[in-house]
């Protein structure tokens, strides 16, 4: 038995679904950020697998993965900045207590 594209895609879907569940169901802001990282990682696995199995030698998927990693780093920096700002000013890390923009 060999490893095909489907194996990587199912793994990618698994990581994405776990991250989606964590993003929707968790209260702690840090854990929500970690779950978003899991989702981005799942997408990256799919990108690289497509690049390897569908167009080997062209690296299109690798380029997409590099940009996703870049944006993920920027997103984590901003997210943790918001977290520290909220914790310093109001002392909360619980996403359901963050209601400054709630009506």
């Amino acid at each position: 038995m060999s490893i095909d594209l489907e194996h990587y895609l199912v793994l990618s879907a698994t990581l994405f679904a776990i991250g989606l569940f964590g993003t929707m169901a968790k209260r702690n802001f840090v854990v929500i950020l970690m779950s978003i990282e899991l989702m981005l990682n799942g997408v990256n696995v799919a990108m690289v697998a497509f690049s390897r199995y569908v167009v080997p030698g062209e690296f299109t998927g690798h380029v997409f993965a590099i940009f996703i990693i870049t944006v993920a780093a920027a997103e984590v920096a901003i997210g943790l900045g918001i977290l520290l700002g909220l914790f310093n000013r109001r002392g909360i890390v619980d996403a359901s207590e963050m209601d400054l923009l709630k009506w």
Partner: peptide
Amino acid sequence: SQTNRLWPGGLAIAGLLYLSLV
């Protein structure tokens, strides 16, 4: 790290998305 009130709904949505993707 607690779950919020709506976690069963989140589990259902993530599970449905997973099944449809697979």
